[in-house]
Design a protein around this nucleic acid. Structure first.
Lengths: 331, 331
DNA sequence: ATGAAAGCGCTAACAC
DNA sequence: GTGTTAGCGCTTTCAT
């Protein structure tokens, strides 16, 4: 403290107008002592932490990595820092996290639960802090709290893939899905059945094999599928599964893209980095992350605004794994 | 407030001993009002935030993903939350982050700069908060602040790969490296030269091609390499480059693992998910992350302890891309 | 323009 | 065991 009141110092440091002389003295003193304001004290007074949180099942999954990257970018751009939580898809943990928001250690949360239970909904109904959910919230959400919601459209996405495969002459389209009791697993299953139906193709249970959303499971499931059926195409519920499927197919000596077409979902970096490169349905993970972050910032700026529900349209990215023409010059 | 003093309430809620009656009344009141303590206020008083930060170039790079996962796990296990920062390898930004620690919004930082400049060292010398650096700090670090340091041993790692390739009969070993002005790039280059030397192999500049540490660059660089030379093996400075190289090789019709052996570095998930699966030198990214987090926690517990410098030993994981025998039944 | 003082929500001494 | 009080470091009325 060199000369002026503590209040004046605060004013100068926050650019709230002070005389030239005061300003000089304060800055000088601050520089000489190496003064840096304490963020925690400031947060306590300001009632905001300038921090956002992201909770996903696994911060190593490429889909969430893409989402996290996008969110971090938006957050950093707006002066917010990002806190990450790996939930391991544990419901109790997710609910605890939601309830923990009452401690006010972050200003807002983006959460992408792989399953959405009643416990989640109950917790969401009592959070005191803005939350945006990535994933499909039930339509009959109680409107006590405005919870913003960003969703993918897997159902349509699966349709895009099936239509593409059918157009390429494929008729026996296998499907390696994730767990049916997850939000994406259920949606993709429904999409598969509806798309077959729309294409006039019969449903053959032999062609469907459940897995979980990871590489090893995808590979094992595809191996089982190949053992008992002869698909001329395989659709996978995400890229991790698809890469597993690719291995199973290659190991079985199949020419991927010709004998058997392969399509993944999420269009992660993996799709481009496989050989042959994988066709994949983009569900816009980065885009969803970006939107989620923006919705959160918007609500922070205007807490009273009505709850938004935005859906990102899927797009199909065709690459060599399902495109005989491209195969020649792959990738 | 129902009945007792504010201090008693605090005691009950923190389990600091109170009479049965007081305890009951406090808990009851707290429950009925839905009271939750404010983390920011608590932090201000406790002078700690229970939060750690991680700063890496790109939170989407598989190496850093593995590191982040490990750190998040250790941090969460010890009751700390994790904040992530993507620096984009921007020196000014990294220094700003380091200086920002004086704001005390986190209790400690793990930073993994891809380049370490004098500005970094200067900033490190004045941080008021524990920092552990992942990557090689100069040996003549001023010891004013105890900065813990976790390092990989790329030099030895490259040697492992070269020895393995030589043992497999390879003689013309190409090398696709990252930028030479980065810490890992420089170390790997030196390792390559020394290993060739130790193996009695001549150095042929034609066999070395620079790239940056990403897929596309790796693929392009490998293409250039193949245009002018005929390597019987290629070592890549990381797995991203190696996957790019794999594509270039396959697209050129090379039988990978036979005609040309391929070895990556970092042993990320990508190595296992490629086909053929990639041999890769593990530099222990997850392990380094774990160690970094543990060193940070240890210093938080005992600020005065001497600076630690730990090096994680590399290991070679041999897979089909460099092993003809395995190739048969790959993967 | 500046200083005094209150207060953000909490915990820890220090009496009683 | 419990209440009173000070204080963590800051911003912001409110006077002057």
């Amino acid at each position: 403290m060199a000369g002026v009141s503590i209040a004046s110092a605060s004013r100068v440091l926050n650019g709230h107008g002070a005389s030239v002389e005061t300003e000089r003295r304060v800055r000088e003193a601050a520089a000489s002592v190496g003064y840096v304001p304490n963020a925690v004290a400031r947060s306590l007074q300001a009632q905001r932490t300038d921090m956002l949180a992201l909770a996903v099942e696994d911060i190593g999954n490429p889909v969430y990595v893409a989402m996290m990257r996008a969110i971090e970018e938006v957050a950093a751009g707006a002066g917010y820092r990002l806190q990450v939580h790996a939930t391991g898809a544990d419901v109790a943990g997710e609910v605890e996290l939601l309830d923990g928001l009452a401690r006010r250690y972050v200003d807002g949360l983006v959460i992408s639960p792989i399953r959405i239970t009643d416990a989640h909904l109950a917790a969401l109904a009592r959070v005191p802090t803005p939350v945006v959910v990535v994933g499909s919230l039930p339509d009959d959400m109680p409107t006590t709290k405005p919870i913003d919601n960003v969703r993918a459209d897997s159902h349509t996405g699966v349709g895009l893939a099936i239509d593409h495969l059918v157009a390429g002459g494929r008729r026996r389209i296998g499907f390696v899905n994730g767990p049916l009791d997850t939000v994406p697993g259920a949606a993709r299953q429904a999409g598969y059945l509806d798309a077959l139906d729309a294409a006039g193709l019969p449903f053959d249970p032999e062609l469907v094999e459940p897995a979980d959303f990871h590489y090893a499971a995808g590979r094992a499931a595809t191996r089982r599928l190949l053992d008992r059926a002869e698909p001329d195409a395989i659709l996978c519920a995400n890229d991790l599964i698809a890469v597993g499927a690719l291995h199973a197919l290659l190991a079985a000596g199949k020419r991927v893209g010709e004998e058997v077409a392969l399509v993944g979902m999420d269009d992660t970096d993996l799709a481009e980095m496989s050989f042959p490169q994988l066709s994949s349905v983009s569900l816009g993970s980065a885009e969803r992350g970006r939107l989620a972050a923006e919705l959160l910032l918007a609500r922070l700026a205007e807490p009273g605004r009505p709850a938004q529900r935005v859906t990102v349209a899927p797009t199909l990215v065709v690459r060599a794994s399902s495109d005989t023409a491209a195969k020649q010059e792959n990738p």
